[in-house]
């Protein structure tokens, strides 16, 4: 967690309302993600955490509000961008489940994540990824379906990084991982962040996630409940009592 508090906004969600069909889940959520920060959204089940990310990708319906990417002095309307073009404008997404292509090899999983917009070739980007994830390189010919849960999560993040994103949206990255792997995963996220990638994640494992975050939001019933610097939220007795549970 670097001192990034003075950074400009990269990604803003403002007064987002929406849900699935006629069921409204989001009742005006606002999130601000400064450049190069790690921002975490926590909250109880059904608070609408993942729905925010799904709304960005058109999986959940948006009835009002906006999502904006502030990139290179331009404001890009994210909700008006087709989902398959989001990786082209610098937004990467790692869904919570089914986030790899099991029948494709590890290398192919990475290749389909590559977006040919940067001045880097596929080989260059892939070699960089292999340097950070030697385990993936070792098994690059194996089908992703043969990987363990932890390795799959690594591959899913690596695939998202293949598009050289400015911001990575992560939906409960630690879900379903063994405790030892959870530490490894959060270490990994800090490393990714140190390379200059902004991170917005939704997490159940609130205490651990907030500990590595620059800023955190507590959501409840589709509304902002609390927000603050990550470490401060973890220490706030009221929030701990209601949302984070006892240690």
């Amino acid at each position: 967690m670097a001192d990034n508090s003075s950074n400009k906004s990269l990604f803003t969600v403002s007064s987002l309302q929406g849900g699935y069909g006629d069921i409204q889940i989001l009742n005006g959520v606002s999130i601000d993600v400064p450049e190069k920060n790690i921002v975490t959204i926590v909250g109880p089940n059904g608070a609408g955490k993942s729905t925010i990310l799904k709304a960005v990708y058109g999986i959940a319906k948006v009835t009002s509000g906006s999502v904006t990417l502030h990139k290179d002095g331009k404001d890009i309307d994210v909700l008006a961008t087709k989902p398959h073009n989001l990786s082209k404008i610098g937004v990467g997404y790692v869904p919570q489940i089914e986030n790899v292509f099991p029948a494709l090899s590890i290398e192919e999983n990475l290749e389909v994540g590559y977006v040919d917009f940067a001045n880097k070739s596929l080989d260059e980007v892939r070699d960089e990824i292999y340097q950070s994830y030697p385990d993936l390189k070792k098994r690059h010919r194996d089908r992703a379906g043969t990987l363990s849960g932890g390795q799959r999560q690594m591959l899913a993040m690596a695939r998202a990084l293949m598009s050289s994103p400015r911001i990575l949206l992560l939906d409960e990255p630690s879900a379903g991982l063994a405790p030892a792997l959870v530490d490894q995963l959060f270490d990994e996220l800090v490393k990714i962040n140190q390379t200059g990638v902004t991170i917005l994640m939704v997490e159940q494992n609130a205490r651990r996630a907030l500990a590595i975050s620059d800023y955190g939001y507590v959501l409840d019933m589709g509304r902002n409940r609390h927000e603050g610097v990550g470490s401060a939220l973890v220490d706030d007795p009221e929030i701990v009592g209601i949302y984070l549970g006892k240690k």
């Binding site: 990708y57 999986i59 989902p83 398959h84 073009n85 989001l86 990786s87 082209k88 997404y93 869904p95 089914e98 986030n99 790899v100 292509f101 099991p102 029948a103 494709l104 192919e108 999983n109 290749e111 389909v112 994540g113 977006v115 695939r159 998202a160 598009s163």
Partner: peptide
């Protein structure tokens, strides 16, 4: 590759930069 990826996991393909 995009075709095989989409066939394998259409949900992920459409949120990961593959032009369906």
């Amino acid at each position: 590759k995009d075709m095989r990826a989409y066939a394998n996991n259409p949900g992920l393909a459409s949120v990961s930069g593959i032009n369906v």
